[in-house]
Design a protein around this nucleic acid. Structure first.
Lengths: 222, 222, 222, 222
DNA sequence: CATGAATGAGGATTCATTCAT
DNA sequence: AATGAATGAATCCTCATTCAT
């Protein structure tokens, strides 16, 4: 009832194939419309009505593809997490021979890039408030989100493990250190994604973000 | 319709004084009730009805003291910011002779303590999303919030200035560095205040928070 | 939250009194409108929108006086039960010296009269279906309905007790016999209140109802 | 668009025969699924979606066999009426030499048995409310239901006619008396099929039902 | 014949805000 | 100043029915 909440075909055939493609396209269209609506109005102001209108489908059709408003949000979030994960994997560049610090810097750059080009994802993250949201999605979907989120963190863990192994880093627990690192640089983005706090700091995103990165990197290095 | 939006008295007199005192008390009562209601139900689930009931006033009375639901929220936020500012001032301990690092550590401890004992304030911060909130409050009120927020940051700025002056810190711009420092440790709290992300990191608040602090401190120090 | 779901006044005063009266009037107006709407459209076709429109109040106002559509229905039902109980009390004529049979006949006549003049009450009774209804009302309200219903039956019990005491009736258990008596004559009304079944029997209400009454009375008598 | 509303074949042939059989089977499958769904969820909660799913056909297919949800209900009702009619015919035992009273008792027992084992039929009867139902079925179908219902009653009429002829019964109009008899015992079942009213009477079905039967029988007999 | 995606008119309920008293 | 009844727009979701394939 969660991820597979879409009509599935069993036997492929010319018509089936097209139908299936159209189904996926429509699903994407709804998701895209939802992304716009959520982004423009904020999660709580967004309405299913407007999502449907923007996707050019009837209201009921939305519920054919998604169980609820919250489920749409969850899928949007996962889309974002997936895109991020790919960016990070690419940035990590497994088959290149890079130093741990280089990898960490590349990961940070990818994260900043993602933030700048996929802002809506951060809004989503921040709007994930207990009350409205968490209760409305299934436990499975929740677990899926956690899993997806962790995969992004894993690249940082690996980079730090390398740094420890290479004797470059002065830390012992890679997992915890990655968490701290993420918390710190993410903190910069969180603050900058909020207009009010951006006004308080009077810096631009890049300089704050990179500043935090340099600070933390220096803190990690021997 | 100004930010204070409260029946103001012009000429003090025995009765006026009592009146005014009662007025302030009632205002506080509403604010206290609102704090409870917002905290227990979340911002979007909270209703003015319940705030009024909890404050033991009529619904209309709430609107006598505050323009809107959002304005109440803004004042609540300022209450929180004020309390924090005082905590930080105390932690800074102007009249004690302390090293910059000591001051920074004390400020961090005060911030963590505030987070742990006044959680609702962070919920408020995080729920400050554009759509619902920013548009609904007056420009003056908005500016007031910014000012209040900055005063908290100022203590960090001063500590870092001291560190630079003392030759302990390897940074040049105190204001920017304070921003980074705040962004980083605040980032730890932001992440930990979210159940989903807490599940991802599998660490407890204190260890993550202190970890980030140590990392950043090491990054700042010479 | 059930029966007292209406603004209550504590200290009577000229204005308060009028306010209270208006409040009651409005409550009655909503109930009256609901009665019409439920009766004309059937319980499931009836909408709160139409009730509000017919009562000439805003939709939200309806919810100021009643918790839900089902609660309105329950109160309507109780109104009916109360009216019936009064009719039966009057028909029983406690202070008249009548034979048990006379009393039973009078009760039956009153019941038929009630059925013929307050038809909507029977519709309500029959539409009390498990799913939609019972779950939606509070346990207290449910108990209230049961209590009210029983009070109607009690008159029949007393008449039969008298018949037993007087040696007129050949039965032993007054409570059970009253139940049977009620079941039988009520059965006549139930059938006749349904157009389809009325067409099957090809009799008019009175003749069927009185026929059942005579049959059952003869069965009870010595 | 007639009452039968099923694809009818004109010229039988091996394949046609199979087709027709399959068609009937599918029709039965839908009816069976509908019976379950209506019974489990109540008429208003039941959805065509679930009926289709349970019958393992597409939603559109349901509309190939039945005009509407209400039509399905009507056919279900007729199924029930047919089953009842057969039970009653058997109970009447035309080729046995029985007294009128014996026959009547047997018919009553069969009716009670039917009530206890085919409860859904009574739910259907009671849910036959004007608004939703009567308007939605064709006049022909309505007439069909009436005819089917009458056939059940006819057995009671015949038994009473016998009782009159044999001089056992003190009534004159067999048809009317049968109606009364049915109304009375049916009334017992109606009351007991409703949880609320069952709570009022505090008797069990059998004792109430049999009590009404004895009472009425005594009323009919000389 | 069968399918099942799409429709879209509802429908119950909530709640911030107003305003007559 | 305080009240609290009234408002009514807004919102999510349901589901019988249709129709192109």
């Amino acid at each position: 009832m969660t991820a597979s909440h879409r009509p599935r075909s069993t036997k492929p055939s010319p018509t089936k194939a097209r139908r299936e493609r159209e189904t996926l396209e429509r699903r994407e269209a709804i998701l895209a419309a939802a992304r716009d609506v959520f982004f423009e109005n904020g999660i709580h102001r967004a309405t299913v009505d407007e999502i449907a209108a923007r996707a050019e489908v009837a209201k009921g059709t939305v519920y054919l593809y998604f169980e609820s408003k919250e489920t749409i949000l969850a899928h949007l979030l996962m889309e974002g997490l997936d895109a991020l994960r790919e960016s990070l994997a690419e940035a990590y560049a497994e088959n290149l021979s890079l130093s741990a610090e280089q990898r960490l810097r590349r990961l940070c750059a990818a994260y900043l890039n993602f933030f700048q080009h996929e802002q809506y994802y951060f809004r989503l993250m921040m709007a994930f408030d207990r009350g409205q949201f968490q209760e409305a999605i299934s436990a499975e979907l929740r677990q899926l989100i956690i899993t997806h989120s962790m995969q992004g963190l894993r690249w940082a863990v690996r980079a730090i493990e390398q740094g420890i192994a290479d004797g470059d880093f002065a830390v012992t627990d890679a997992k915890n250190t990655a968490g701290m690192f993420w918390a710190a640089i993410n903190g910069a983005l969180v603050i900058m994604s909020h207009p009010l706090r951006r006004d308080i700091l009077e810096q631009d995103v890049e300089s704050l973000y990179n500043g935090v990165m340099e600070l933390t990197l220096k803190g990690i290095k021997k």
